[in-house]
Design a protein around this nucleic acid. Structure first.
Lengths: 174, 174
DNA sequence: ACCTGAACACCGTTCAAGT
DNA sequence: ACCTGAACACCGTTCAAGT
């Protein structure tokens, strides 16, 4: 609060006239971030639409420091965020996701992106000498299990493909 | 730190003789929690083994308050946690997961469980009157998109099934 | 309507000093 | 070897008082 206030050339106490508290401010920041992120154009294939959406979501998250905790700790019932939730939900239903599992699946996908970006940022913010130190510590066998992704874009898309392949497989199973 | 010290009838400053800092303490707690969680017995079917593992993981997480942030913010290079990572990784390889995507997939699954339990705890800790207030605020259409899971166990398993169906589908695709 | 200074109750952490 | 008191530099938040 003090840091944000400083940036605005006011005092932290003044922020409490505009926002009820830190989480309320988070909510406003999250809404702003979501208003800047471009939804892809409607597509006949809901899967293509969703994959494009989640790619844009990740790009938005990567564009702003600490966006993940802000999104994670804010309440999503703001206009722009609800718009996104509706668009995603409709596409999921169109893909064959059942109503009873809609929230679970939407949360799963949302959490995938947030967790992926959180891990990505954590890695990118780890100093190289620290990484080297860890590398020295691990035995050869374990290095395979804890290797660092070389291409985050590629790995992100691969994870998405796994998730959508799962949704399609369960749809066809009945 | 002060709260933990109080529980031990010492002062917070004393903890710094035993641990280098808060995250170091988190690491020790995480290792302890993981040592209490029983790995399922080896199975011929790696998928059964993995599903049993992640169910036990969730049970462990639910058994202790704030376990999710402790696991999320600690470094996993401790003996018991490495044991678990090795067992999970081996089962994933046996399932047909490729070496290049192993870390991505293992992280995806780990993040799924952590995020699911985090959401579950958030909901369970939301007072009923607050939930009712939100319910009143939403329009009927949106309620479908933001419904609360009635059975967390069932939804957790469903999410796992989606993930494993995706892994199997991508394996068969080549 | 909007901002401030001063305070409150909290953090994690350090360190000289104790035993 | 293990613990402590006192301090440091931080938090988010409140509120009477200013303009």
């Amino acid at each position: 609060m003090r840091a944000i206030a400083k940036e605005l050339n006011i005092k932290a106490a003044s922020l409490y006239w505009h926002f009820s508290g830190k989480l309320d401010l988070y909510g406003a920041i999250a809404e702003y971030l979501c208003s800047r992120y471009e939804m892809p154009e409607e597509s006949d294939d809901p899967k293509d639409y969703l994959i494009a959406s989640y790619r844009a979501y990740r790009t938005m998250l990567l564009s702003t420091r600490d966006s993940v905790p802000v999104l994670e700790n804010s309440i999503p019932y703001t206009p722009r965020r609800m718009e996104i939730i509706r668009a995603i939900s409709k596409a999921l239903l169109k893909m064959g996701v059942k109503e009873q599992t809609l929230t679970t699946i939407a949360n799963l996908l949302n959490n995938y992106v947030l967790s992926f970006v959180a891990d990505e940022c954590r890695f990118k913010n780890t100093p190289p000498d620290k990484l080297h130190e860890i590398d020295k510590m691990l035995c050869p066998q374990d290095k395979l299990f804890l290797s660092i992704p070389s291409d985050f874009d590629e790995q992100f898309i691969y994870g998405l493909q796994v998730l959508f392949a799962g949704l399609e497989a369960l749809k066809n199973r009945e």
